[in-house]
């Protein structure tokens, strides 16, 4: 463990907590893409199957349980509890265009052709594009509530910090995992446009609502 990865995990945890709080306190999931949240739940389920078979550390197991629980709690809030506020009309991204290519790619390019490893690889590829329905929805609605933009900033920062962690681990431990690195770079690049708008929103006129040009 290093400070970059710890900061990344905390940023990730913060993002999930911000999202849960936003939906729970506003009692609405307007502006939130349920499809992205489904992608994330699939990602953590496929990646954390080793929760019971492969003990790394108390921290690792605890965080996995928290991420899984929060992912499904978010799905419950969106699709059950506050279902009436779910914005079907703007959450229209075709997720099959994400699922099919990532499944094919995980079967073609992986470290080991075993079920657990292919599922891990699939979760890495899926996570890198899972935010697309959300970014697409924000661009369609043309704006994001400020709390949603904080969520996206924390979520985007988590994988950016992981990239620094991978650089550190390469030089400090000679460790690197190309699949995770390439997918992590793709994932972070997808946020660049959003990062720019989020950081410059202070200097733009309507600072309250962040408007993303379509």
């Amino acid at each position: 463990m290093n400070v970059f990865r710890l900061a990344g995990d905390i940023s990730h945890l913060l993002a999930i907590i911000i999202l849960l709080l936003k939906i729970w306190t506003s009692r609405s999931c307007a502006g939130i893409s349920g499809k992205s949240q489904v992608m994330f739940a699939i990602t953590y389920t496929a990646r954390y199957l080793d929760l019971f078979t492969n003990f790394i550390s108390l921290y690792n197991s605890t965080m996995k349980i928290i991420f899984l629980g929060a992912a499904y709690a978010t799905l419950y809030l969106i699709y059950v509890r506050f279902k009436a506020t779910y914005d079907h009309n703007h959450d229209t991204f075709r997720v099959e265009f994400l699922l099919i290519p990532t499944v094919i790619l995980s079967v073609l390019i992986n470290h080991d052709f075993s079920p657990l490893e292919i599922l891990w690889t699939f979760s890495i590829y899926l996570e890198s594009v899972a935010i697309l329905p959300q970014l697409f929805m924000v661009s369609k609605t043309g704006e994001a509530e400020s709390i949603t933009s904080h969520y996206l900033f924390a979520l985007g920062s988590y994988r950016a910090l992981y990239i620094i962690n991978w650089v550190y681990r390469y030089y400090a431990e000679g460790f690197y995992d190309l699949i995770a690195i390439v997918a992590g770079v793709v994932q972070t690049v997808l946020y660049c446009d959003f990062f720019y708008l989020y950081i410059t929103k202070g200097s733009r006129a309507n600072a309250t609502e962040m408007s993303i040009e379509a």
Binding site: R5, H12, I56, F67, D112, S114
Partner: peptide, 10 residues
């Protein structure tokens, strides 16, 4: 070879 891929990251 079946490398036991130990993923220690979240």
């Amino acid at each position: 070879c079946h490398r036991l891929t130990q993923h220690d990251e979240l």
